[in-house]
Amino acid sequence: MALFGTDFLKKLEYLSLVSRRVFRGSILAQRKTMQLGGGIEFADHREYSPGDDFRHLDWNVFARHDELLLKRFQEEEDLHVYILLDCSTSMNFGRPPKFDFARQVAAALAYIALADLDRVAVIGFAGDIVADFPLTRGKNRILSLLKFLEDLKPQGTVTDLSRVVKGFVHRTQRRGLALVVSDLYDPNGFNGGLDLLRHHRYEPHVIQIYDREEAEPKMKGDVELFDVETGTIQKVTVTERNLRQYRAIFEGFQESVKAYCQTYGLGCTRTSTEIPFDELILKMMRTAGALT
C-alpha cells in the first residue's frame, strides 16, 4: 500500500481524533438531517391534531396565547456520505498526480465519516460511473475502502459530470452529503451535474483539485498541446502574452466554481496538489466549524 501506507493511516487517525475533539457535531456524523423526528433540537411548531403526543405540546404557548401548538424536533440520524471521485485521465496530470491526491483526500474524508459512525459510499467516475464502493458503515471497513481506492486507475472517456450525476441520483438511496472530488474539467461544464445533485436534495460539497503546472504553465514557443483526456493535439505558438491570457482564463474558471458554490450555498474547497492532504482536511474542518 504505497499510496495509503502506515504514515497515511497515522495521519487519518490523527485527523479522526481532531475532528471529534474540535469539530464534534459540525461535520459529517452527528449532523442534523433534513428529517424531522425525535431529536432534541427544536425545529418549529405545528397545530395540534387529535392523536398527537401530549408530551410534545408547547404548554408555554398555550398559557400565553391559548393555542395548542405542537413542538417539532429535528431528528438526528447517521449521515450518508457519497464521495464522487473523478477518475478521468485528466486527474492523472501533475506531479504528484492529482488522482493520488484526490484518492488521499477521499480516503481521509471516508475514514473520518466511518469513524463517526456515518455511512460512506465512493463512486468513481469519468464519462460515466466507472467504479462503485457501496454504502458501508463502521471503522473496520476502512481497509476495504482503501483497497478499493488503491485499485482505482484513471480511465474512461471525457469527463461528463451531468451524465454521472444522472446515473447517481436515479439510484434508490437516501439523500446525504455528496462530496465531489474532481478537477471539474468537464467540456460541458460542471454546473449541470451539481445542479442535478441539488435538485435531488443532496448536499453537494465541491473539492476542486488542480496542479501548479495547470495554474501557471511554463512552456513557450512552438509546441503541440496534447490533451491527455481527449487525445486532442493542437499546434500552437505559446508566447508570454498567451501565458498571461491562460492564467487569466484559468483564474476565471476557478472564480466561476467559487461563485457557483457561493450562489447556492455549497461547500467549496479549491486546492493545489502542493499542500499535504491532511492540511487540506484540517482546513476544510476549520472552515466548516467557522461556518456553523
Binding site: S90, F93, K98, V228, V236, N242, Y246, F253
Partner: peptide, 20 residues
Amino acid sequence: LKIRMRRVPVSTILFWRQIF
C-alpha cells in the same frame, strides 16, 4: 527538426482553445 514540435501534455485543452 524544429517544425516537429515539442509535445506538451496538458490535463485539458479547454482553456488553451479559448486563447487560440
